[in-house]
Nucleic acid binder design. Structure first.
Length: 414
DNA sequence: ATTCCACAGGAATGAACGGAAC
DNA sequence: GTTCCGTTCATTCCTGTGGAAT
């Protein structure tokens, strides 16, 4: 009996919807492509490369365009004698320090037997290794740092472009390409870094609804079998993407989730309804992932917000959230954190899109404060909190602790 | 125009921890 | 073992600030 067999009812090539898919042409970015190409021209001339800084919102084609051009650049460089080009592409998502970037770059340059640990060394020692390895490599090296805005210090952005000037390296010609989702990041850079990193700046505007549509149509063509995807699906995904600042990544993610749902259910078409349910699931996993990354106190604070929400006490200002939070802490036998720290956690929840904040100001009478609401539907939070809170044993203590009403109900359900 | 509320959030500092080097 | 080093989570102290009240 055959246990596994390929399912080709809907997809031709599902990989075309994945984040790492490289389309064979870039849609709607002709101007940016030209400028970018010009900035990379020195590489093929064998000259010292330009440093390039790209910025634009998430999902506007910065990474795709970069990969597309660098692929071509590598192919074309290979055709030229004596042109030795290496591209080091590093996604800095979740990497918060120059130190971590440096260790990752070193490990990228080394084989598995010579990898270094990401802790323990002095920063200068890691840079020493990096320079030595780059020099050993020689030729032209392009270092691409994607999502560069997650790095909280300047150091590597200062060191890399100057490595040659400072005689840290002599053989390799180094070019740095920085990609940022956040324009603010540019302003925050020190002027020393700005002048070298931002030699060439490229701004990627958001996609409009039409551009999103043609991107999606292109992907649908490759990924799905003919006539499997309802026309309304593309329109819907494009609309969602356009609403959230022209984000193609999000649109494509939706498309894939909808397709997966349709396939799981053995449907022969992908409908708007699939995509809508897919959107819901994506939202849930996004929240679950966010909650998984919280500290225990972050969860208590979220739990406090959740119970207040269920009691119709939201929006709630920080001051009024605190008593509920302390109750929860005592229920689990922990000391509550200081208010300053609580604000940090609330800020985290807002960043994750789990909570929403409004600033209020009542002037001399009431002063300035912030009000928080729960941004997602309670069930999503309950689902995600479930395991972690259960592990700490909050639920039972809360019920015993006398939380009444709907909050108690939810607590009981845990 | 000035005062002032009530909090936001920056900066400095420290404890705990994992890893490297000696 | 001890000494460095970087990271994370926390506390303490403090300055900044938008707009109603004066």
């Amino acid at each position: 009996m055959t246990l596994f067999e390929p399912d080709t009812s809907i997809y031709d090539d599902r990989d075309a919807l994945r984040e790492d898919y490289q389309p064979d042409s870039v849609v709607g970015r002709t101007e940016e492509l030209d400028a970018y190409k010009a900035a990379l021209q020195p590489v093929i001339n064998g000259e010292q490369p330009n440093n390039v800084f790209l910025y634009g919102k998430t999902g506007v084609g910065k990474t795709v365009t970069t990969r597309y051009l660098l692929d071509h650049l590598q192919q074309d460089a290979a055709a030229h004698e004596g042109l030795d080009l290496t591209v080091l592409m590093l996604n800095c998502d979740g990497v918060t320090s120059s130190y971590q970037v440096a260790t990752r770059l070193v490990n990228r340059l080394r084989d598995e037997t010579r990898q270094i640990s990401s802790t323990g060394y002095p920063l200068a020692a890691v840079y020493e290794k990096l320079w030595a390895d780059l020099d050993a490599l020689g030729g032209t090296v392009l270092v691409v740092l994607d999502e560069i805005d997650t790095i909280e210090d300047d150091s590597i952005l200062y060191q890399l472009p100057r490595a040659r000037d400072n005689d840290n390296i002599s053989e390799a010609k180094l070019g740095l390409i920085g990609i940022s989702n956040d324009f603010e990041f540019r302003q925050e850079l020190s002027s020393k870094v700005k002048s070298s990193l931002c030699e060439t700046e490229l701004h990627f505007p958001t996609y409009d609804a039409n551009e999103l549509r043609s991107i999606l149509e292109r992907r649908v063509e490759v990924a799905f079998r003919d006539d499997v995807v309802d026309e309304a699906v593309v329109r819907y995904c494009a609309a969602i993407g356009a609403r959230d600042a022209g984000d193609a990544r999000q649109s494509i993610e939706l498309l894939m989730k909808g397709g997966d749902l349709a396939r799981e259910e053995n449907a022969d078409r992908v409908t708007e309804e699939h995509v809508k349910r897919g959107k819901e699931l994506l939202e849930r996993s996004r929240v679950a992932e966010g909650i998984a990354g919280l500290t225990s106190h972050g969860r208590y604070i979220l739990y406090a917000l959740l119970t207040l929400h269920l009691e119709d006490e939201t929006p709630v200002r920080t001051r009024n959230l605190r008593p509920r939070y302390t109750t929860i802490c005592h229920a689990v036998g922990n000391d509550p954190l200081v208010p300053r720290r609580m604000r940090d956690h609330l800020g985290d929840l807002t960043m994750l899109g789990i909570a929403d904040v409004t600033e209020r100001n009542e002037g001399r009478r009431g002063g300035r404060y912030r009000e928080y609401t729960l941004q997602t539907i309670p069930e999503t939070v309950v689902d995600a909190l479930d395991e972690t809170i259960r592990a700490v044993g909050v639920h039972q203590s809360l019920v015993d602790g006398g939380l009444r009403g709907s909050a108690g109900e939810v607590a009981r359900e845990f």
